[in-house]
Design a protein around this nucleic acid. Structure first.
Length: 204
DNA sequence: ATTGCGGATAACCCCTACTA
DNA sequence: TAGTAGGGGTTATCCGCAAT
C-alpha cells in the first residue's frame, strides 16, 4: 500500500517526516483517543489561569475550581511543558502567557542547551536567589500581560468529579434508605391486609 | 505494495530530596 | 506545608528493514 496520508497529526511528534498514518500503524492514543493526562481544553484553561493568578499560585488555581482533579505537581509539570523549560522559579508570580515563553525557548539552540522532553533543563548549578530575581524582573518586562487584561480573565468552573461522586453516593444511600422504608411499609400493609389462607381458599 | 517486527525515541507522570 | 528540581519508570509512537 502506498503511504496513506491523514489529517490526523501524531501528538507525540508534531513535526517531521513521519506525520502520516500508515496502514500498519497500530490503533493508538494519537490516532484513536486523547492522550492521558491533559486535554487541549485543560491546557488552555491552565494557560489562562497562570495568566490570571500568576505562575506558581497553584492554590488559587485549585480554589478557582477551573481544573478539577489536577494536582499541583501535574499543573507544575504542564507549566514546564508550556514554558519549554524545567525551571519555573524565575517566572514565579508573573502574569504571563506561558506559550509565548515556550515559543521562544523552542527556538533556543546551542551546546549548553540541554533538553528533556523538549524542556530546557538546568545544566549548571542551582540559581542563586539574586539571579532568579534578576531573571524575574527581565521576564516581567518582556512577557507580563497588562493588569487590565489578566484581571478580566474569566475561568470556566467545573464540578470536581470526586465531589460529584460523593454527592451521588449520598443520593444512592438516601434512595436505598427510602426504598427500605417503602418496602417495610408494604410489608406492614401486607400483614394488615393478609387474608387467612383458609378464607382465600374458600372464596376460590 | 503491504505487513510485521524490533530498537530508538518521546510523552507522561511518579517519586524523592530539597528549599523557603 | 507549598513549591521546585531532577531522576527514572512505563507506555505509546516512530521508523527502518526484512519478509511476503
Amino acid at each position: 500500500m502506498s503511504t496513506a496520508t491523514s489529517s490526523v497529526i501524531p501528538r507525540s511528534m508534531p513535526t517531521g517526516q513521519r506525520n502520516v498514518v500508515r496502514s500498519n500503524d497500530s490503533a493508538s492514543l494519537w490516532n484513536c483517543t486523547l492522550s492521558p493526562g491533559w486535554t487541549l481544553d485543560e491546557v488552555q484553561v491552565l494557560r489562562q489561569a497562570l495568566m490570571k493568578f500568576g505562575v506558581g499560585n497553584w492554590m488559587k488555581i485549585i480554589e478557582s475550581e477551573s481544573l478539577p482533579g489536577k494536582t499541583i505537581a501535574q499543573m507544575n509539570l504542564q507549566t514546564q511543558r508550556m514554558l519549554g523549560q524545567q525551571s519555573t522559579a524565575e517566572f514565579n508570580g508573573l502574569h504571563i502567557d506561558t506559550l509565548r515563553v515556550g515559543e521562544l525557548n523552542s527556538l533556543k539552540q546551542g551546546k549548553d542547551i540541554k533538553r528533556k522532553n523538549n524542556c530546557i533543563v538546568n545544566t549548571g548549578g542551582k540559581l542563586g536567589r539574586d539571579e532568579v530575581e534578576q531573571r524575574r524582573v527581565k521576564h516581567r518586562e518582556m512577557f507580563e500581560v497588562e493588569e487590565s487584561v489578566w484581571r478580566n480573565i474569566v475561568l470556566p468552573r467545573f464540578d470536581n468529579p470526586l465531589v460529584v461522586l460523593d454527592r451521588k453516593r449520598a443520593e444512592l444511600k438516601a434512595l436505598k434508605a427510602e426504598l427500605d422504608d417503602v418496602l417495610a411499609q408494604l410489608a406492614s400493609a401486607g400483614d394488615e391486609c393478609a387474608v387467612p389462607a383458609g378464607t382465600k381458599r374458600a372464596r376460590e
